[in-house]
Every structure is written in structure tokens, then in C-alpha cells.
Design a protein around this nucleic acid. Structure first.
Lengths: 244, 244
DNA sequence: AGTATGCCTTGACCTGCGTCAAAAAATTGT
DNA sequence: ACAATTTTTTGACGCAGGTCAAGGCATACT
């Protein structure tokens, strides 16, 4: 809500004749591979959509006719077991591309955590577009490779790290997530709930909470509010994350 | 060893003037995207390599100057923590493509389990080749998408499934691994050790062993030998794998 | 202000899986 | 065929993290 009040102009532009040219997420996303002069071709097949907190926009098992390019907000991506156990496979932010799955149905669900904005592409139209923009396909391949690396890192976390190491890894990763070369942040704002964090790290909400308080008493972090975290001792937290 | 004695002709062909044309792994791999008439271009940049059991051919952190296309045998892909804890992120077989990572260093290690054969490509040469064969790039993207789906499935397993569910999932997956539409196998030959299985499923070797014996007493499987497994009750095993 | 509704935290207890140790079985070398 | 070595299985026991239950603390609603 606040966000919208602060950025009315940009929101309007997103609906203007050349939305992509002014898209703040472009430099982060696959669209960066498309030349300025060709942006209209891209804009013609893209549909801007908004989702409210809690709203689901990809459902595991449903027919996968669309790709999504996140341009704002944060979404949780997850898989469920029949009895309700949930594993969050990742959090998706501006610049992330969703729906790469080759199968004809989605392999996961996606839900808005805060207010989410996406560009939606019909599967067939995007494939056609890729013919015109081979650079976009390259970028997509690079993205997929990066996600694969992240997934392997997460498997290491889920399979072999302790609760403390998992939470430390999570915080360090969040602190680095703006850009690979940008300096890591010290103050973190977590849009997700404790339950989300637990389901991402393969833990229970109680263990996440207890581990947070333990980090606090050990002066590794401070918690000005539930969703705000300040890293006090990055070196020690990093060592812990790596299993040292 | 046995395999070589049975297939000397094919091994010879792999060193002949047009090795790719007779490659048994071609229909399974990205090379299937290359036209017969263009196979010589592919063959010119590919180097056939063999690795003995236990031999490592990708080392995490090393400069990633090569891609590998597995054409025979089975390899373990894994990541290590400094103190030696290991997570196997996957087993790679004929047709699998390794090294997609976009970073300039490998994000995981790869080691031959049995005798492994690969086609090795210099990174730069393959990129050049992709310009000539856009279909190969498409196939690569599809492969990456499939691996991503598998990785998410594995995160669900590692984060939320019990030991019994993990082992059941493992066996069911192995039984289906020849082809997506082929009928699942009932008799499985596992080239990997119990330690490998444990490190893949995020368990200890003792738990894997105990769970195997429990499956045996429950008549879910029979174990004619350590590396041979017969699925006796696929329906029940499948239900177990899905958390039912 | 008061109260309702979700989170989040904390505590007490429990259990599935890990750890440690040793026997059994399979594999390898001579 | 036998000894040496490695891998797997089995048993006894312990603990990290799960489960259950009760309180605290926000933000929202009247």
C-alpha cells in the first residue's frame, strides 16, 4: 500500500504504450536481453498482473500455459505433500522468471507474500518471441543454470546442515540477494513469516523461533522487530553458515 | 569390465571418424538436436574420455572450462561442507549434461561410480557451436528445466519426508528412470553404495540399512543381493513415497 | 480504550534418527 | 581356497529437533 502511494508514476507507466521501457525490473530480468527498439514486440505479448498477499497465481498440477516474470513484491514457491506438509523451494522477487518447467503442468505452486506484480506471457507466444530474440533464450538458459546452482546449495542445506547452520545460511543469503557484486546488507527486512522460513529450511516454526532467540543472546543478530533483522557479527554468522 | 567385453565394437566406433553418429547415448542427450549431416562439427570439438570407479572429473571450485556429456556409466554429483559432510545432489547417467553452471567455477564435484564415459567440450567451443545449432540450445534449456523440477522434488524429500518415505521415493524414482513413458522396472540394480544412498537422501548409512531391512520384512521389496532390489508391492511403495 | 485475531515465543516432554560399537557378509588380493 | 579389507547389518543408547500446550505481543476492528 505504502509502496503504491510512493510510486504512482511508475505504476501508471506500466500501463502506458511502452511499459517495458520504464519497467524497473528490466535490468534484473530476461527482458534486459531485448533491445530498446524491440521492446514493443515484448510489450505486445506481456500482460501486467497484480496479486494481493496470500493470493496464489501458480498451482502445482494445473495446466502450465503461462510464464511469469516477477516485477515487484515477493512470492513463495512451494510443493505440498497430500497430508499438508509443505516445502518452500524458494522465494521469488523482481527479476525472477517462473514457469520454466518443460512439462505441460506446473511442478510447484506460487503465492504472493506481499503485493506482487508480474508480467504474464502465454507459453506459445513467448516461444515464438524466443525465435526473434536468441539473446533472451541465452539469458533464460543462464538463469536456469543459476537456479540450479541455488537448488543444489539448498539440497546441501536441507540434507546436511543443522538448524543453526540453516538459519545462518538463510540470513547470509538474504543479505546478499540484491546483486552478486553489491555489498551485502546488514539490515534485513523479511517479508515472509516464521512459518515460511521454517518451511523453506525444513524445520518447524518453534525451532526457527528458538534459533533466532539464541542468535540474539549470542549477539550474532539483533531483532528490532519480528520482520527486521540486523546482522551484528557477519564473520561468525558466515562461518556458522558454512558449517565451521 | 564386463560391459567392455560385450561391446568392443561400439567402443571402437567411438574413436572412429564419425563417433557421434554411432553414439548410443545420442538419442538421450542434447546431441539429438543436431542433424546427422552436422554431426562432424560436433565430433570435432568433442573429446571422448573415460574415468575409472572413484575417479573424480569435476571438482567444486575449480575453473569450469569444460562441459561434459555423459555417454556411459553412473556418476555421483555432490557438494561438501568443510568438515566432510557430503550431500549428493544427483546421480548422472548416459544422456546427462554436466557443467551448465554459469559461474566460472564448478558448483559441485563429480565422481565416477562405475566406469564412466563422457564427451568433453571446451566451454568456449560449445558456446560457438550453439550459434550454429539453436535447436541444441533449446534442448539444453529443456534439460535445465527438467533438472530444476527434479531438484525441487528432492528439496521436498530432504525437507519434509521421513526416512521411510525418502527411501521409497528413491526406489520408485530409480524404477522409472529409463524413460518417462517406459513401463517402470521391478528389478533394480543399484551401482551406488549405501553411503551414496544415505548422502543422497540426507540420512546415515545405518538408517538406510535399517529401512531396507524393514521394507524387506514388510514384503515391500526383496534384496537378492546388496545391489539388487526387487519391488514386490509397487502400489504400497508409491503411496509411501508420496507421504500417504 | 477494549477486545478479537493472528503471529510469535517459550517451556516441558518425546521420538525418529544419529552415534557408537561390534558382528556378519561381501569383495579383493594372493 | 584363504586371509585381509571393505561394506553392510544389527544392537544399545543419546540428542537435536519435533510435538503439544500455554503465554506474550502485535495489528486490526468496534
Amino acid at each position: 500500500m505504502l509502496m503504491e502511494q510512493r510510486r504512482p508514476v511508475i505504476m501508471d507507466r506500466a500501463h502506458a504504450s511502452d511499459p517495458c521501457a520504464n519497467c524497473e525490473a528490466r535490468p534484473l530480468s530476461v527482458c534486459a536481453a531485448v533491445d530498446d527498439s524491440d521492446l514493443d514486440k515484448l510489450a505486445r505479448v506481456a500482460v501486467v498482473q497484480h496479486y494481493e498477499p496470500g493470493q496464489s497465481f501458480i498451482e502445482e498440477g494445473e495446466k502450465a500455459d503461462h510464464f511469469f516474470n516477477m516485477t515487484g513484491g515477493t512470492a513463495r514457491l512451494y510443493k505440498l505433500l497430500p497430508d499438508g506438509r509443505r516445502q518452500i523451494t524458494g522465494f521469488s522477487r523482481a527479476g525472477n522468471f517462473l514457469g520454466l518447467a518443460v512439462s505441460d503442468t506446473y511442478g510447484f505452486s506460487a503465492e504472493a507474500i506481499d503485493r506482487v506484480r508480474v508480467c504474464r506471457f502465454a507459453r506459445t507466444k513467448l516461444y515464438a518471441l524466443l525465435e526473434d530474440f536468441p539473446a533472451m533464450e541465452k539469458r533464460l538458459l543462464a538463469t536456469a543454470g543459476n537456479e540450479l546452482v541455488a537448488a543444489q546449495e539448498q539440497m546441501l542445506l536441507l540434507g546436511r546442515k543443522t538448524a543453526r547452520e540453516r538459519l545462518a545460511s538463510f540470513l547470509i543469503n538474504i543479505s546478499r540477494e540484491d546483486a552478486p557484486c553489491a555489498p551485502p546488507r546488514t539490515v534485513l527486512h523479511l517479508p515472509m513469516t516464521r512459518t515460511d522460513i521454517a518451511d523453506y529450511l525444513g524445520l518447524t516454526i518453534e525451532t526457527v523461533s528458538r534459533t533466532f532467540t539464541r542468535f540474539k543472546t549470542e549477539r550474532l543478530v539483533s531483532l528490532p522487530s519480528v520482520s527486521e533483522i540486523v546482522i551484528l557479527d557477519r564473520a561468525r554468522l558466515t562461518r556458522l553458515a558454512e558449517g565451521g
